[in-house]
């Protein structure tokens, strides 16, 4: 049985977990077994509706203390659940919480693990999982040599498959170790899609010259309904908040569309965005390295091109 961990935050199911469910369901089909899911704590979303992602059974350890994330406690409960349910593969989203617990669960299950997988494993001979390495600059195919396997999958790498279906919900009684971690505050940027979950991203670099010029970028993002990102020097100079920094030492993202404005395309920047499906580069220097990694390019002054692009988008939306 393939067991998928459902990650939650403030009692809402994370988008990345829906993708993990779809991955687990496809993997179970490939292995000729079933996929089930596991939730710790409780959520306000309807669990049975998760059936539409193909999972038929959901196990819930309905203990409110588990609504507060504690890597040590969560990993212990998940490993015990996997043991008592007889899971042979455990699937996580490779998101913040998944990174914190999937390797610990693998230790407890004596399972080999591949983190950051980007495709279904090859199971014709052995069990070989492909993952991104060197910050997206290459792929490695890794064989897991243990009977039980743990996989965490990169966000936005598998996609969602939706059908009809309802899942049955079963409560699972497991001992929950005492947590000694006390959450003191949660500080969220309200009303914004987290950058790692955004499908459209507009990003600015040093070419925009200063924080006072970000208006044209924000207008474009608003017209598209996109989230905003930036290069490292921009966040280092406090032109933009640190959580917008993408690249090798910032967030790694894989949106459907990444628009880079006044960013040269240094290798460390590309490492954070090269998994984007479509890349548009706006730069006044035709020699900027970013054009080599782009699908569409506009050689021109951002201060003219960006407002024109915003107007064209608004025009096309008005026409639609």
């Amino acid at each position: 049985m393939v067991l998928v961990y459902i990650d939650q935050d403030e009692q809402a199911i994370k988008k990345a977990s829906l993708e993990a469910i779809c991955y687990g369901v496809a993997l179970a089909k490939q292995l000729g077994t079933t996929a089930e899911a596991l939730l710790l704590g409780n959520v306000s979303d309807s669990l049975s509706e998760l059936g539409k992602y193909g999972v038929c059974k959901i196990h819930q350890v309905d203990n409110a203390t588990l609504n507060n994330f504690d890597a040590r406690v969560h990993a212990t409960v998940i490993a015990n659940a996997a043991k008592s349910l007889g899971a042979t593969v455990v699937v996580f989203a490779h998101n913040v919480n998944g990174k914190a617990i999937a390797p610990a669960v693998s230790v407890k299950l004596a399972a080999g693990i591949v983190t950051g997988a980007c495709a279904l494993p090859k199971t014709d001979a052995g069990f070989v999982v492909t993952k991104t390495v060197f910050s997206g600059k290459a792929f490695a195919s890794i064989q897991i040599d243990t009977p039980i396997k743990v996989i965490s999958i990169n966000q936005n790498s598998f996609g969602l498959a939706i059908s009809d279906g309802n899942a049955s919900v079963h409560s699972l009684n497991l001992e929950v170790p005492n947590s000694t971690i006390k959450i003191t505050s949660v500080d969220k940027i309200k009303g914004e899609v987290p950058l790692t979950e955004a499908s459209l991203v507009v990003s600015g670099g040093r070419g925009l010259k200063g924080p006072e010029h970000w208006g044209i970028l924000l207008d474009l993002a608003k017209a598209l309904g996109a989230s905003t990102a930036c290069s490292r020097p921009v966040s280092d100079a406090d032109w933009r908040p640190h959580h917008e920094h993408v690249g090798q030492t910032g967030l790694q993202i894989a949106p459907n569309l990444y628009i880079a404005i006044g960013i040269s395309g240094a290798i460390q920047h590309l490492a954070g965005v090269n998994r984007s499906k479509t890349i548009v580069v706006i730069n006044k220097d035709p020699e900027a390295p970013f054009f080599k990694a782009a699908d569409y390019g506009v050689v021109g002054d951002a201060f003219e091109v960006v407002p024109a692009l915003t107007a064209a988008i608004l025009k096309s939306k008005g026409a639609a």
Partner: peptide
């Protein structure tokens, strides 16, 4: 518990399509 079988490089981009800055439509 794991062993690397092989590496691959991502397929090269087919090349950038340039769009005239005066034609954002």
């Amino acid at each position: 518990t794991t062993s690397i079988k092989n590496f691959d490089l991502p397929p090269a981009k087919s090349g950038v399509k340039l769009v005239d800055p005066a034609n954002m439509d």
